[in-house]
Design a protein around this nucleic acid. Sequence first.
DNA 1: TTGTTATATTACCATATAGCGATATAGTGA
DNA 2: TCACTATATCGCTATATGGTAATATAACAA
Lengths: 120, 120
Amino acid sequence: MKRTKKEESPKELSSLALELIARRFRALSEPVRLRLLNVLMQGEHTVGQLVAASGFGQANVSKHLAVLREAGMVASRKEGLTTVCFIADAIVKDLCEMMCSRLREEMEGKAAALAFDPEI
Amino acid sequence: MKRTKKEESPKELSSLALELIARRFRALSEPVRLRLLNVLMQGEHTVGQLVAASGFGQANVSKHLAVLREAGMVASRKEGLTTVCFIADAIVKDLCEMMCSRLREEMEGKAAALAFDPEI
DNA sequence: TTGTTATATTACCATATAGCGATATAGTGA
DNA sequence: TCACTATATCGCTATATGGTAATATAACAA
């Protein structure tokens, strides 16, 4: 099963591709970052607003924002003293919603299983 | 902006939900695990086959499989001496493909921006 | 200039995790 | 029973990462 550059069925991925994909998933793998994205999905926010809305420390938020920017998921522009952040990649919303709805199904399944016949 | 339990616009996610979502993304955040999933997408494999196909150490593969099982993405059944693994959650494929195609677009964009000769 | 504000960066500690060799466990067969 | 195989788990080290306080930087105001 040799494969030239031209015929691309995405069966086998290069190590580099895996590395890049993993890096993007990793950006989504922290609750703090998901919270920030969750807030940003409702619209642009300054860093200060994100700090206030999330309840996390300023340095912490700044660092997590750096990770999200690095991953290309968030971008920002300076406006005077403040930095206005926004979602830079629409995929974020899709990925999170997909994960959310899958999780919801799962938990509803478990809830239903536990609901009336508690074996305990 | 108080929100009661009943009205659920999925705007705000609970800390628990974020934690669970983050945990699933984390399972996808390692190249080794992505490689294993990549192999498993082509069909069931025993652990030994995964070790051979991936080139990683046996203990390492076993540990990463445990993570994927924990996240509900891979399941397995014992067959005699061997353990046959398979993708347990179809979302894996969707998530990875989504990420892949997004990445591809991006790299093609960069390549186009950088390349004087796009045909290399 | 000096001072203030918003954000980024640094330094540090604590924890999590990857990788690996060694060992344990479980199934199979002699 | 003993030996062999396939897989899981343990013990360890090295590295990565999260959190936070302190500091640096940058933009603005007086």
